[in-house]
């Protein structure tokens, strides 16, 4: 599978593997919900993880950041295995995970939320701040407002910005479009493309909006019933709607001929 490097990556697209999931099985209370998952992301890539509800996408993300324990297989984030039970360690190494519920701190202001995402020296922090607010300028006038009082779209922006101020090398975004009006989703989703291009970070997005996701992604994986059933370059997958449909509905699949 070759990368469809459609856009010019300006800086830091060194092609190093940021995320390497190998034969991963994980689940709850000892019951595997995902099995034999293989997935990788290189720097500068946007990878979409698609599939119907319950396919195991969120589970995969949880395992990557260390909130869930792998039953089998391995997960290597930025070259080192992820630490289960200590997600903060992986986060400090450069992983940013925006979970499905966004995990905003509603009692804190926008500014305080952002402050918590900062990392590194003073200048690195300032740079991170700048990057995030450049990408999401709508937040600037909202600094003093409590996060709980923001609209859905604003909250999602805040969640993204908070992840970005730490200048992550690997960004996981779970269902960014959840609960948002389509027009807002259309505006927000391309930001991940900018992130990958401008900072060289690798981005993994879990999305329900297949079309929008494939527009910004380089590659995509489709999960169904806990397994990867389809993968390929985003552009190609966009052409093969029949494959997508079949993978969503399950059943056997021949590889793309």
């Amino acid at each position: 599978m070759t990368d469809t490097a459609t856009t010019t990556s300006s800086s830091a697209a060194t092609g190093e593997t940021l995320l390497d999931i190998s034969n991963l099985s994980a689940g709850y209370s000892g019951v595997a919900v995902i099995r034999g998952v293989n997935l990788h992301i290189k720097s500068g890539e946007v990878v979409a993880l698609l599939g119907p509800n319950g396919a195991g996408k969120t589970t995969t993300l949880l395992t990557v950041s260390g909130l869930l324990k792998a039953l089998e297989g391995s997960v290597a984030v930025l070259g080192a295995p992820t630490t289960f039970g200590a997600p903060h360690k992986t986060a400090r190494r450069g992983l940013a995970h925006v979970p499905e519920d966004r995990s905003l701190f509603f009692g804190l202001t926008v500014q305080e939320n952002l402050k918590l995402g900062l990392r590194g020296s003073r200048s690195e922090q300032a740079a991170g701040y700048e990057t995030a607010l450049d990408l999401l300028p709508a937040l600037k006038p909202l600094m003093g407002r409590r996060a709980g009082l923001l609209s859905g779209g604003e909250q999602q922006m805040l969640a993204m910005a908070r992840a970005l101020v730490g200048k992550p090398k690997l960004l996981l975004v779970d269902e960014m479009s959840l609960g948002l009006a389509p027009i807002i989703v259309e505006r927000l989703l391309p930001i991940v493309r900018d992130i990958a291009d401008n900072t060289g970070a690798g981005v993994l997005i879990v999305e329900q909006h297949v079309h929008l996701a494939l527009e910004v992604a380089d590659r995509a994986y489709v999960m169904s019933h806990g397994e990867i059933v389809l993968e390929g370059a985003a552009a190609e997958l966009m052409e093969r709607r029949d494959l997508l449909e079949a993978s969503y509905l399950g059943g056997g699949l021949e590889e793309d001929a």
Binding site: L67, P87, H88, S103, G107, L108, E112, L116
Partner: peptide, 16 residues
Amino acid sequence: RAADENEKGAALLGYS
């Protein structure tokens, strides 16, 4: 205060 409200969120941001 953040962890008090949402431990998971704090952990994902790098706070133990």
